[in-house]
Design a protein around this nucleic acid. Structure first.
Lengths: 322, 322
DNA sequence: TTGTAAGCGTTATCAA
DNA sequence: TTGATAACGCTTACAA
């Protein structure tokens, strides 16, 4: 149906092997024949079928990136970082958004994968990762020789930020968490609790709200807070999107930020900059770039580097009082 | 290296065909054998190799999306729309960011493609599109039975918006264009010129600035405008990102928007909402959704539907005077 | 320098 | 209900 290697062979009056050799720059083919074949490929508009090729070769010079949350625009920055390193190193990038991602990790179309999807299960990754299919995870840590992680240090900056809030005289804290199984959320919440307890500030579980990292769940929490008799004076959110949702909702309902209530986020997305949200800034382009570099090093057989940890900075802006 | 169908066959003591039949739900295999095979697949952690399969089948139930501009976060919305329809119809979505995209359009890993990348050449698309590889383009129109387009009506809303500016008593216009070869830009600029000429408002080519749709080029244009002796009273931008870049720069340099100069965009991205940018609102989730629907209809052989044109609305916000 | 033939992991056809 | 075999498009020994 499509023009294939054998069509070229026929048209050129040579064998398939010769065409293959010519195309792959092997030296056992005369310049004359080679030129003829190359011209013919152009003319007949031939393009090698990668399925056939990678079936045979089991290497593809391509990597896979998996994500599935479209609410968070920092994914674009990560993708850009991955793309940047990969294409600079002559690797293609394929992005997969579905759970059927497992299929693409096993089909010899890619040589390794970068995962940033909390719905992806550890078990799946452990099943798939192997000598010649390394994986880099961006949102967790997994003990496995073929899985590396580029971790973001969540605890330290969250602790510093909460301490900063205490120093700014906030005393009645609320926390809006993300999906509870995620390491991100655990670490952020853990650091938050630690600092409060270190400062002997009580925290009641009633002031914990459960969200899903999406803007909508920020609004939901804000609406509940509006009806609390004793309102918290600051809402610490496990990510920016929820913080933004909360701020919008507070303002719509007439609560001023930061005068009536402070709000903080985590991520430093585009909107955070614009809105002046106090938050923790994760360098996402760099994160993607480093992930791609690690993965490709692994694909080339370089193993056992030490775990990379990225240390984000706090951006004090105007959604908390000075 | 990976466990394959023949390993299962061997372990089960049956033939490859039987395993294949069992896995693909064919009815010519006894319940007993089937269960045994399925259990074995679980246990041995077998996963069919998609390269092998699609080589044989030349259909993959997957579609390809191509883009390459990471500055524009509306891509995420489009991806979400595509993903939504595709996964609802049991198609996988693969996203490709590089020019090597052509490779993936030809490798039988996908059944069709959606293109939104102005660097992709028409010629390439014409070469690739065929009976069983339909394409949907989102940023242009191509005459070809296998290429459909979901177009955004650029002219009408741009014309209405510029007329609205005239009605608001703006008289000295500047225009910041995108990449000049793109249809988007041509139509937006064309409509802009039309309305001015209809209103007998002169427009000098000196007031045309050339950009690349990225934020940075908005800043560049703004800086030039700052040094013009006779400043325009409104800057019409071919997209939001450039408008945002321009506004930031104006404000940094002490020019007030809209008091000293009006600014308009095109897209209605997230930031536009926050910043109160007057712009044209393109429904991107829907655009992606419709593109996926069209593409999958085409894959199923449904051809010759009429061209879809999306009509965006104008959002009058606060970067122009009332 | 070129060609022949085997094999990568599947599915489809047809015979048992 | 099952199994043997050919085929998909490609690369690669190895033979010519």
């Amino acid at each position: 149906m499509n023009v294939g290697i054998k069509d070229i062979a026929k048209a050129a009056g040579v064998s398939k092997s010769t065409v293959s050799n010519a195309l792959n720059g092997k030296k056992n083919v005369s310049d004359e024949t080679k030129k003829m074949i190359l011209d013919l490929c152009q003319e007949l508009n031939y393009y090698p079928n990668a399925a056939g090729r990678s079936l045979k070769m089991s290497e593809s010079r391509a990597i896979l990136f998996n994500f599935s949350d479209f609410d968070r625009s920092f994914y674009l920055k990560i993708i850009e970082g991955i793309h940047d390193f990969a294409s600079g190193n002559d690797f293609d990038l394929i992005i997969c958004t579905s759970k059927s991602c497992e299929k693409y990790m096993r089909n010899s179309m890619t040589d390794g994968a970068i995962i940033l999807d909390f719905r992806m299960e550890n078990e799946t990754l452990l099943r798939v990762a192997r000598e010649n299919y390394p994986i880099v995870v961006l949102d967790r840590t997994i003990e496995c020789p073929y899985i590396e992680s580029i971790a973001v240090n969540n605890s330290a900056p969250m602790a510093d930020m909460v301490q900063g809030l205490v120093d700014r005289n906030y005393r009645n804290f609320a926390f809006l968490g993300g999906p509870e199984q995620t390491d991100d959320n655990k670490e952020r919440y853990g650091a938050f609790l630690d600092v409060l307890s270190k400062n002997s500030i009580p925290f009641s579980r009633e002031n914990y709200f459960s969200g899903d990292y999406r803007e909508r769940s920020g609004g939901k929490a804000a609406r509940i807070i509006m009806f609390m008799s004793e309102k918290p004076d600051v809402l610490v959110c496990a990510n920016d999107n929820m913080a933004i949702g909360a701020i919008r909702c507070f303002r719509e309902m007439g609560l001023r930020v930061p005068e009536d209530i402070g709000v903080t986020g985590f991520d430093d997305c585009e909107l955070a900059k614009i809105l002046g949200l106090t938050t923790v800034s994760i360098p996402n382009f760099e994160r993607g770039y480093l992930a791609a570099r690690r993965l490709i090093e692994n694909i080339h057989g370089k193993r056992g580097e030490e775990k990379l940890i990225i240390n984000p900075l706090i951006k004090w802006r105007k959604t908390v009082r000075q």
